[in-house]
Design a protein around this nucleic acid. Structure first.
Lengths: 141, 141
DNA sequence: CATTATTGTTAGGTAAGCTAATTAGTTGGA
DNA sequence: TCCAACTAATTAGCTTACCTAACAATAATG
């Protein structure tokens, strides 16, 4: 079995794609990948706790605090203390934050999207879609 | 067309996988992803120039210099000045470096490999292999 | 109640990258 | 032929995106 080769190629790919993505996103939004991911989680979930966000984005809770501080400074999110359990802080997007993520999603100049649409055939894009759930299995937990 | 969704999922995946990978590799080899990638390029190519390595790994040349310094300190690579063009430095792996990359490839405790083999069916692994060239198209240049 | 657990934060550090400037060597045109 | 422009690698110094350890506040549990 030469899964070694698969693992190896996957590593190179992820490393390369990560660098391109990071550069692209920071240029267009001046946010890090994880910051964008945080906003997009909030876009889909209405409100979440810092620990939940940290788990989903795979960063430590102190790191998530920093991210939330930055996003709060820019008025992309708001913090609301939970009256039931005063340790908890409910995080949600402001309307500004919603605009930011909607822009990022729709952005035609988006480098990754441009690459996909200019370099891949319709069939290849379909194949790529099919493989996403598989990659998610590897990524999860 | 909702390529937006595809692009979005791909971003989350790459960000998550990158974090897992980086952690895993640094724990098992105390190398960064790019450092491992550099060694593996040298494993396949016998000798390369710093600029070539920088291009392939998508880092700047000063960053590559740093990486090469670290790898040279550990005696994983050697630098040899090119007599034809004295500006050029030919980089190649030492036998120690070869052992390192061979170990990293074969490592059964390898986290990514473990995930792939324990979580995916044989069919899914096949599909994954098929999609690699497509991802490479996105990654290249 | 007193201890233990959980949530979020602060403080401080590190790793992996970047740009700008430097050194050294090469090439091509007036 | 020689100087201007280019190329290759490096150095210096900075930034960003994380991390761990320690702490304060609150909640749950024996």
């Amino acid at each position: 079995m030469e899964n070694e080769e698969l693992v190896h190629s996957l590593r190179l790919l992820i490393s390369g794609l990560h660098k391109s993505l990071r550069k692209d996103i920071s240029e267009s939004t001046s946010l890090s990948l994880t910051e964008l991911e945080t906003i997009s989680l909030l876009y889909r979930n209405d409100h979440m706790l810092p620990t939940e966000l940290a788990n989903h984005t795979k960063v430590s809770t102190p790191s998530m605090t920093q991210i939330l501080n930055k996003l709060a400074e820019r008025k992309y999110i708001r913090r609301k203390s939970d009256p039931e359990d005063k340790r908890k802080v409910s995080i949600s997007l402001t309307s500004t934050g919603k605009k930011v993520i909607e822009n990022a999603l729709n952005n035609q100049d988006n480098e990754l999207r441009g690459r996909i649409e200019s370099r891949l055939t319709a069939g290849e894009i379909k194949t790529l879609m099919k493989v996403l759930p598989i990659l998610e299995k590897i990524n999860s937990l």
